[in-house]
Design a protein around this nucleic acid. Structure first.
Lengths: 206, 206
DNA sequence: ATAGAAAGCGGACTGCGGTCCGTTTAGCCT
DNA sequence: AGGCTAAACGGACCGCAGTCCGCTTTCTAT
């Protein structure tokens, strides 16, 4: 008599079969190589499948769509960035006063988004990833705004502060209006200062 | 002896040939019908061409791409909206105090964007149209902010106020976070109030 | 070891956006 | 009228995202 490897109701989703795992790795490596050597546009589903030595159906089984694949590629850097925010060195990570953290957050977010601009665009609004990324950032900004004593509709204010950091806006500003990045960063800092300063009473951090 | 119908260097782009004009109208009507009866996704280039009784190449000659066609469909309502801002009744049009105009602007923009959400999404960042729409709105907001006595980097602040009105953000808020539209509108008003109120001195209108 | 079932696999197939190029037609000039 | 040219036309064609379904592999229970 034996038990199943893991109790079906406990371990969340069932574990991945070994060939599936191997193929997922191969696909991610193939996609990364293609991005690095030929750019994002060269990442066609056929090309990735061929380079990884699997069929096209397999690509779609692992990653729902092309956007899903791009989202998976973004995942590494996104995770690293979230870790830096949650537990990295100040002022981005914990330890600095809330306002400094907030300004560092915007700075860093603008740089990161511009760095991965084409990948983010290609990932589009791929359900899960976009939502996860947005909700993490939104949660953090809500938290900092609250620490700064901001009253009112904090969730909406947080979204409003996040919106100008979206790649669509940044791309418009840098590529079409030719605005230098550091001016955009200073502009965001000014926006934050105004939103927070309009608060009747600012609160000191404990 | 005769002159050319119009001096070549004066009339801007050369006039449209009559068959071209006829076909453009037929294509726009076909596309509008398809949107109204079957939704935006049904607007395939083949379908539009077939319904208008022309070849596919003709569609691409008139409107550069699918996005360009969608942009052309948006053009009517966009133009009407711009006219309402420039010369319609207050508070959206001229006549009301700047702050009231600004709030009316945001209100109206949110409603308009949500109303044409799928068309705007399908139009994507179709070069000309997206840029024209953005730059009109940006110009208007810059003007009103200046009237309100706002100092600092007004162009960046204007873009920052416009960003949360983009369809991507609005869609996230209304469809995924289930936020009611009027709360979004109140939230934007709060944002504006904070940005403007942070100004040391407000200026009275002449 | 082995059999059975579930998960995974692969590549042919479909539909759509976009391009190309040989043919047609409108508008002008004699 | 007749011809000439540039513009417009049309539909065959291409590449890629995404689907489908019959075949293969892995894992587990005996």
């Amino acid at each position: 008599m034996s038990e199943p490897r893991s109790l079906p109701l406990l371990g969340g989703p069932p574990p991945e079969r070994s060939d599936a795992a191997r193929n997922r790795e191969a696909l991610l490596r193939a996609a990364t190589d293609l991005v690095d050597h030929c750019g994002v546009e060269a990442v066609t589903m056929d090309a990735v499948a061929a380079k990884a030595g699997v069929g096209k159906g397999t690509v779609y089984r692992r990653f729902e769509s092309r956007e899903g694949l791009m989202a998976a590629l973004l995942n590494h850097s996104e995770t690293a960035w979230q870790a830096a925010v949650l537990s990295g060195p100040p002022p981005l990570g914990p330890g600095a006063p809330p306002m400094e953290r907030l300004l560092a957050f915007g700075h860093s977010r603008i740089e990161t988004n511009l760095k991965h601009a084409d990948l983010i665009t290609a990932a589009g609004h791929s359900g899960a990833r976009a939502y996860a990324a947005m909700s993490f950032a939104a949660m953090h900004v809500r938290y900092l705004l609250t620490r700064l004593g901001v009253r009112g509709d904090v969730p909406i204010l947080a979204t409003s502060l996040l919106a100008p950091l979206e790649i669509a806006i940044l791309h418009q500003q840098t590529h079409i209006e030719q605005i230098p990045v550091d001016r955009i960063q200073r502009g965001w800092a000014e926006l934050v200062r105004r939103v927070v300063a309009a608060e009747p009473s600012a609160v000191m951090a404990p």
